[in-house]
Design a protein around this nucleic acid. Sequence first.
DNA 1: TTGAAAGCGATACCAC
DNA 2: GTGGTATCGCTTTCAA
Lengths: 341, 341
Amino acid sequence: MTRRPTKPSLQDVARAAHVSIATVSRVINDTAPVHPDTRDRVLHAIERLHYTPNLHARTLRGGDSRTIGMIVSNLKNPFFLDVYESLEAEAHHLGHEVVVTSTGYDPDRLAAAVRLMISRRVSGIAAIVSEMSPAVLTELTSSGIPVVVHDADDVRRDLMTVQVDYGVGMQQIVELLYGFGHRDFAFVGHHTALASLSVRERAFTDALHRYGRDVTTRIVTETDALDGGRRAAYALLEGDVRPTAIVCVNDFMATGVMRGLRDRGVRVPDDISVTGFDNVTLAEYADPPLTTVDIPRDEIGRLAVDRLLHRSPRNRAEGRERRIIPALVIRNSTAKAPTRR
Amino acid sequence: MTRRPTKPSLQDVARAAHVSIATVSRVINDTAPVHPDTRDRVLHAIERLHYTPNLHARTLRGGDSRTIGMIVSNLKNPFFLDVYESLEAEAHHLGHEVVVTSTGYDPDRLAAAVRLMISRRVSGIAAIVSEMSPAVLTELTSSGIPVVVHDADDVRRDLMTVQVDYGVGMQQIVELLYGFGHRDFAFVGHHTALASLSVRERAFTDALHRYGRDVTTRIVTETDALDGGRRAAYALLEGDVRPTAIVCVNDFMATGVMRGLRDRGVRVPDDISVTGFDNVTLAEYADPPLTTVDIPRDEIGRLAVDRLLHRSPRNRAEGRERRIIPALVIRNSTAKAPTRR
DNA sequence: TTGAAAGCGATACCAC
DNA sequence: GTGGTATCGCTTTCAA
């Protein structure tokens, strides 16, 4: 009774209820009037047989899987998880399912993920990744499936995007730090298999260059993880010029950085100021609470789904690109620079 | 050129390569010898048309989706994410994909997730949830799909499980704390929509009852999140009997608890000791680093997949249940109890 | 080595 | 209101 080799199909239900499969289908989808008695018989048969519709058959027939594929770089980073949750909520709201995949910043895994999504005939693909390569981008756009990207280096004309103005965010951070008297900076970024600079890193260097030549910068890249941040901190403390301000690519790594500094007896923010990016919940729970830039993750997820499913920007002028302006959140991980030795 | 209404099928490729669809299928799956020239023509056609196989058709035909469905309670809790990653790694290793869903401890969402997995005709379901209800359990087992559960309250005979001996883990924590002189305990658990006690909570009370009547306990439940832990801490500090030791259901909430205590000027571990459970990375990065019990998440994921896919315990005696013994990890969030007032 | 055709499960159109 | 059937894209005999 427990082990049935194959699951019951419409055919089985039809036989059990002494009706045609067409009628069963009508009952299930409520797509046409069915006699109450017939309807009851069918419902009972469904119950009795534990019938569950085969989604593959349905999709094959209908052509639409009512599923959205989401590809992110690193699910362990709370940022992506938050975007995922908002995206899923919005998708469910519109009667769609979501399938996620994490690539670990690996372009090969990204390519595989894209192909899998296409094979699944998803109704749309949201690529929230930073390791996007031109080749994969081409594969995506030529798939005929609606695609929306976030964080992509190479933003092309034929692409829908949900972009965050990282320039403004970094600008605010640098201003705050510079205003506090910091002149020796460091940036902690994360590895990407691609040679190109990450969007956030470029935003940082651009912002810094806007200030005079009296600043120093050092850039360290590590894995996007707590221990990556910790190692980055170790590395920075070993350099000749010790930074007084460490700007991190995101809150996740910043949390690791602060731990690394604590390990070495460095006080935050008294000795060194640290900033994050994203304003994930973790940032508030770090010790000290992290100064960061708030990125509205829920808006990213929501907008992505809307672009994918509606495809009908009510406002033509709004276009295919949607830009989000982030806001600075000042907490206790930043302070005036210690007097220079 | 970008918008093609329907994706190319085997039929299209066949036409383009001037062969039959059977031949194309053979080329794709390397299932029978094909003349090199023919093979080349087909390959070129595939390339030219951007052909991507339709997974739904394939599954419909073959009956097996080569996908494992994983259902967890709360993806935001790093514990589940770690299990997911190990499960996915093992599944990929065996040529399967993984689809996850998070239920947020909601039995309704669990039921919906189960039905969706069944509709997807997954090759196996791993239910790493604590809100399992008898009804859903029945739906699962009668689906004919291999199922493995973890953390289930109601463990039934006809179920494969990957169980962790939470009793031993909690026992070790209580021993440590009691040995430190703590007599006033508190337990911070998380909400579950079901009335039944969670496995970990019961393990805690059992362990505590093994000691004399000279202990007090108080139990608080909150949402499984950082801010849930924080609120729990607030609540505990407002009680008549202030605990000197707070045992948390997991590291995630413990991290929030410590933040809550800090907010109120309570020092950990000098004033109050705090313990977690799981030994997720976050526990080590908390301040102070958290005393906890190590649960081998990667083993849980790996074992789950093995049970699901192999279904052939090489050792019959090993049976359908696999028990994991956890180990205590002592860090700095625990210390001797302050002298009693 | 290749092709024709059956059939997986569901939907929808066309008769009755 | 109900039944018959073509069809979606693919794998797999069975013939040639």
